[in-house]
Each structure stands twice: as C-alpha cells, then as structure tokens.
Simulated scan of single mutants.
Amino acid sequence: MKCPACGKENASDAKFCNSCGSPLAFPGNHDVEDHLPFSNQEDERISPRGEGREVYPQDYYEDRPSKSQKKMAVKIVSLLVALAIVCVLGLFAVKTWKRASLEKAATQAMEEGNYQDATVKFQALYKATNQEKYQKQMTEAHALAQDSESLENAKNLLAQGSYKQALQKLLEVRNHNNGIKQEAEKVLTDLQTIVEGKVDAYNMMQDYSTSIQLLNGLLAVAPENESFLAMKTHALSAQTGMNEEKARAETEAKAAEEKAKKEEKEAASRAKQAKASSNIINTFQYVTSGSANVRSGPGKNYRVNYSLDRGAEVYVYDTFYDGTRTWCNIGDGWISYRTLNGEL
C-alpha cells in the first residue's frame, strides 16, 4: 500500500506509514478503496459512523511519537536513574570501605609503634571526614612519634657518653603521659647509674672538679634531681676536705722547711763558732771595739765587772756559745768575742 502523504510503499495490512508515520486507513474501514486522499496541507479523519471528520495538520502524525517509543523512553529513563542510584551507592560504599580500611591501618600502626605512619593516616582521615575524633587521634599519634624519636635519641646519646644531652631528650619524653614514659624512666635510671659510676671513679682519683663539673651540667637540665644533688654534695664535701688537708699539709711542710733551714743555719753557726772557739782557746786576743765589758758570766744577762779599752790584751782560757754569740773566759770574767775580732 502506498502512503498518501509521502508516497512510500508499505505492507497491505499496515495502518501507518513506516516512513512518515501517517495513517494508511481510516478506522472501521480496511479496504484500500475506502481510503480518502490527503491533501498537501491537511489530512481528514472520519469518525466510525462517517458523521463528521476532523482536520489535522500534515505534520501531526510525523511529530507525534508512538506508544512503543514512549515505553522505550520510559524504560531508558528508568534504567538511567537506576544506574545513577547504583553509582552513588557504589561510590558511597567504596568511600566507606576505604575509610574503614584506612582507619584499621592507622590503628594497627599505633599498636605496632609506627606512630609517624599512624599520624599520616589519621591526618588523611581527618581531611576526608573533618571528624574531631580523627584530629585527636592524629595529635596523639604525633606526640607519640615525637616521644619515640626523643627516646631513641636519648639512648644513642647515652651510649656516646653525652649524658647532659641524653637527659634533655628523656625529659622531653617524660613531659607527656603516654606509654613511652615508663621506658624513658628506665633509661633515666640507667643514666643515673652510669653517672654515679663515673663520679665515683673521679672521686677515687681525687678529681673532684671533674665530678662537680659533670654533675653541674646535669643539674642545669634537671635541677631537682635528688640523685645528682646527693652526688654533688658528696663531691663538694670530699673536695673541701681534700683542700683543707692539702692546705694543712702545705703549712706543715712549709713550717718543717723553715725549721730545717733554721736548724741548718744554727748548725752552721755553731760549727763556725766551734771552729772559731777552738782557734782562740789558750791564745792572746786584743780588744778591737771602742770598749769591751767584762761580765760575771757568759751572757748579756750577767753583771758587768769592768770594761776594757781598745787595744787591751787578754788571754782566753775557755769559750762558751749561748746561741747568739761566743763568750771568752779571760780569768776574772767573760768577754764577748765580738769585741775581740771586730764584730758588732
């Protein structure tokens, strides 16, 4: 059957043109002969009884979609909506799964002591969710990471003998109340034991200055540490005692030295006087001073019996040294040898 609108051939039992969609037969009449021709401007639609007809524009049937097309469009839209819902749900499920997986990994990192890794993961969770709990966990993990690093540094410094620096790192750890604090306390005890051994060794060598210098450095970091304070007190006391003993020993040594010098001088003087005395006994001597007192005994404390003028001759029977001068016995008294040989 030829379409009266576009002239295309269609099947004999077709009701609408496969090309333009125009009706090929009127309702109630399926004979080709009963079909009415369509004009170029409008088509006529006859009622079943032929009592009247309505006129439609020529493109009315061309623009109007069929029922099958409408159903197909509804199915497509429904499918697209369903796919969109599935995608949204899928994205939500993936996002939830990723967050749960990341949270599990962060918790495991905390349990294993990988605090730096845990900090990064909790930070990612906080950025993704903006939840306060992840911010708190991130802060806690960061503090633990810092404490862990300080503790490891303290151990290394202690092994190197840098006791002051090691103590500083340990105090950084102890300022936080977390699980690492107990280990830091143990390392601090080890440090105190090592320092005590060092101080004892210095003290045994009486090198108290080195002991005090070491303890002063540690007390500058921890001024209230009772162990270091006790060691310093002991070292200061020992140093004071040593200094006093040293000063006393030096004083005694100096006195002994002076005494020895004095005794040596006196011995030399006695030897000289003894030699001089031995040379003048049983000899005649002459007064060389302006005048010479003759005393009743060998010493200036004895009374003066009489005086001799310069040039007077005396005979020496014996001599006596009183520690200061030599006295000569001239028979009726004692005269100082100084007045005989020109000494004052």
Results as ranks from 00 to 15, higher is better:
Glu252Gly: 05
Tyr321Leu: 04
Ala276Arg: 07
Ala256Pro: 00
Val316Tyr: 05
Lys272Tyr: 13
Lys300Ser: 14
Tyr317Pro: 01
Arg270Asn: 14
Trp327Thr: 07
Asn293Cys: 11
Tyr317Cys: 01
Lys275Cys: 01
Thr251Leu: 12
Lys259Asp: 08
Asp309Glu: 15
Gln273Ala: 12
Ala292Ile: 10
Gly311Phe: 15
Arg248Ser: 13
Gln285Asn: 13
Lys259Ile: 03
Arg325Gln: 12
Arg303Asp: 07
Arg270Gln: 08
Gly311Thr: 10
Ala247Lys: 09
Val304Tyr: 03
Tyr337Met: 08
Leu308His: 01
Ser278Cys: 02
Ala271Lys: 02
Asn301Phe: 06
Ala260Asn: 07
Thr339Cys: 08
Ser269Glu: 04
Asn329Arg: 04
Ala267Gly: 05
Lys259Phe: 04
Val294Phe: 14
Ile280Cys: 02
Ser296Met: 00
Lys262Phe: 15
Tyr286Cys: 10
Ala268Tyr: 04
Lys300Ile: 13
Arg325Tyr: 10
Glu263Asn: 07
Asp332Lys: 13
Asp309Gln: 12
Lys275Leu: 07
Lys259Val: 02
Asn279Asp: 15
Ala253Arg: 13
Lys272Gly: 03
Ile330Gln: 11
Tyr321Thr: 03
Lys272Arg: 05
Asn293Tyr: 14
Thr324Asn: 15
Lys254His: 09
Glu313Lys: 01
Gly323Glu: 09
Asn329Pro: 02
Gln285His: 04
Arg338Leu: 14
Glu250Asp: 11
Tyr306Ile: 05
Asn293Ile: 11
Tyr302Val: 06
Thr339Ala: 07
Asn282Val: 00
Trp334Ala: 06
Phe284Asp: 15
Ile280Asn: 00
Asn329Phe: 08
Ala268Glu: 14
Thr324Gly: 03
Glu313Asn: 05
Ala271Tyr: 00
Gly299Asn: 10
Phe284Pro: 14
Ile335Asp: 02
Asn282Arg: 12
Arg248Leu: 14
Leu308Ile: 05
Cys328Met: 09
Gln285Arg: 02
Arg248Tyr: 08
Ala312Ser: 06
Lys272Thr: 04
Ser277Leu: 03
Ala274Trp: 08
Ala256Ile: 02
